[in-house]
Design a protein around this nucleic acid. Structure first.
Lengths: 343, 343
DNA sequence: TTTATAATTGGAACCGGTTCCATTATTTAC
DNA sequence: GTAAATAATGGAACCGGTTCCAATTATAAA
């Protein structure tokens, strides 16, 4: 592997000059520029990233941290983020917040463990971090941000860090979903929630409940099933709700997965969706148009949000000035799983 | 940030000694060991990864390269891989083989682009690479392996590199799937294939066809629909097959997504699955138990395979001797989407 | 006790970039 | 044409580790 010294020798210039050509700042005459570029090409030179990182104190790497419950961060989104980083030659490392073997964490609370695991990522070498999901407390985030300001929150909101928070209005989304059912004439509405100890799940639930309240609709506790976004809980939830013998005509589900599983359970028990019971999902997964019936759900531009979060992080880390957006409008997708009772 | 020189000064030893403590090789007396460890703790010392990488020429990083069509590499698998790397303090960077903006690639074939993109990953700093998916030719892989031997193939097989290839027996899997339909009395069988220009898709198709042939079952061209693993193509494929007016009682689908979409299309057209038409999937996605009806499919231990591939790569990169497995038995999962015509 | 051998130890040199400053070449102003 | 200002250039010093060798100390053998 050729080094800048090799390039300098071949081009007949000093190493400082080569470095100046590389970093594209500092002044270099047209003549030397050509000489140096030719030499680089001849030697098939690529700057050594470790050496660069060592002397410049920039890793040209950002991290993504998330936990099991962070939700859907699929490959598509990852790739979107990567494409955002690519023009700047930034790499992306992923890490799991749930890893167990962090040394001697026996006497640490999950809180400290989260913080430690994040600190470790920074120490192991990255310029900034996307903290994905809301499975980490605002306090912890503030503490982390204090020491490592180059962070950005994806699908989480901390009031003290509005310019680093990227999230949807989950409250409004929950409200919309409920409103949609109500507008279709439903008044006996059940729900299968997501995690409620996590902000976004909680907010959407609150929006849902408030929409009912604002329309003078009462929801008995028997019609609220606490789920966790999985297929399994969606399935169990639907069966559980049926067993309550409290009549209902619709279920609002915390995400599309629970919704699909609920449809499955209901159908198996002889109920027709949407004729007997309507189902409202949340997420608009790819698959949602291909369920039986196709799922009415809430769509959120997750990838757009990820892109904006990434840009903000780039601005923070590398003093850039990329355009960043904080508003990610949600959309009601009406397919066929909600019946209009007013017909 | 404290450096080893700070640690050495505080502990009253030389920097070589501190380095020896860090790397845990070379001999250090118990007494100095304690002194150095205390000093490290007091200074909250973490070795600088760039400096380490520069002098040791190890990045302690491995990459994962894949393309759009590489298939399912979900977060769960990524995390499994990460857990494998964690004890050795290795990081993982992900990259997309489909990225467009690689400089001046205008006159390059996709082939060279793939190779270039992989070379770039190595140059940008990683010790080894998991090449995921078979969307890259054997020739290219051989060329790459020649220059960068630290690679491992996930879900791909190159005959010249048996010890670096990790894949399922897709041929056998396709054969199994067809056999299952035949054993259930089906003789008029259609299929919605995956990508056929990719090895694994091609192999499973071949296995499928051979099973039919071995049982003297003929499949007309009208009952073969070339798909691409997407929901959309699955849906279109089912409609297309119905339009052919060639009667059939079962469809073998290239993956679960096409299968689900096919079920959706058939149901919409008034056919009952499995009573009118049976559906066989391939993958056993999480969701497969919750479709209507639950999907009969082929299960492959993808995560186990990923773990073995990762271990092999670790062995290659860091001279380790972790246990590696090359046999990943597939499994037929019988749910409810295939009807037994012999009843 | 002396000598041979092995275990420890310190630190210079190095990895390949970036930065900064002193020096030289080139313009511009008058 | 000369002085002053500006542009271009070379290279030492540095970033924070690892490695290797020479020097020192401890241990074993005689």
């Amino acid at each position: 592997m050729a080094t800048i010294r090799d390039v300098a020798r071949l081009a007949g210039v000093g190493i400082g000059t080569v470095s100046r050509v590389l970093s594209e700042n500092g002044s270099v005459s047209q003549k030397t520029l050509t000489k140096v570029n030719d030499a680089m090409a001849a030697l098939n030179f690529t700057p050594n990233s470790s050496a660069r990182a060592l002397s410049s104190k920039k890793y040209n790497t950002i991290g993504i941290w998330g936990t099991e419950t962070s939700g859907e961060l699929d490959r598509k989104t990852l790739i979107k983020i990567e494409h955002e980083l690519e023009p700047f030659n930034i790499k992306i490392i992923v890490t799991d917040g749930d890893k167990k073997s962090t040394k001697n964490n026996t006497h640490n609370s999950p809180q400290t463990t989260h913080r430690k695991s994040i600190e470790n990522i920074f120490k192991s070498g990255c310029d900034g971090l996307i903290i994905w999901g809301s499975d980490i407390s605002a306090l912890e985030i503030i503490q982390i941000e204090n020491e490592y300001p180059n962070i950005v929150l994806l699908n989480n909101k901390v009031d003290l860090l509005p310019d680093k928070s990227f999230t949807f209005d989950h409250y409004q989304a929950g409200y919309f979903a409920a409103k949609n059912l109500i507008d279709n004439g439903h008044t006996k509405i059940a729900c299968i929630t997501g995690w409620l100890d996590v902000d976004d799940g909680n907010l959407r639930q609150q929006g849902f409940l408030d929409a009912l309240k604002d329309n003078n609709i009462d929801i008995p506790n028997t019609l609220i099933f606490e789920g966790n976004y999985t297929f399994r809980k969606g399935y169990e939830g639907a069966l559980h709700l049926l067993n309550q013998k409290t009549p209902f005509t619709a279920i609002f589900c915390g995400n599309d997965q629970s919704a699909m599983a609920a449809i499955s359970a209901l159908t198996k028990k002889g109920f027709n969706v949407p004729n007997d019971i309507s189902i409202m999902g949340y997420d608009d997964m790819n698959i949602a148009s291909y369920t039986l019936p196709p799922l009415s759900t809430i769509q959120m531009p997750f990838q757009k949000m990820a892109i904006s979060a990434t840009r903000r992080l780039l601005n923070l880390c590398y003093n850039l000035d990329l355009e960043v957006n904080y508003d990610f409008p949600i959309k009601l997708i009406n397919r066929e799983s909600v019946r209009n009772l007013k017909d």
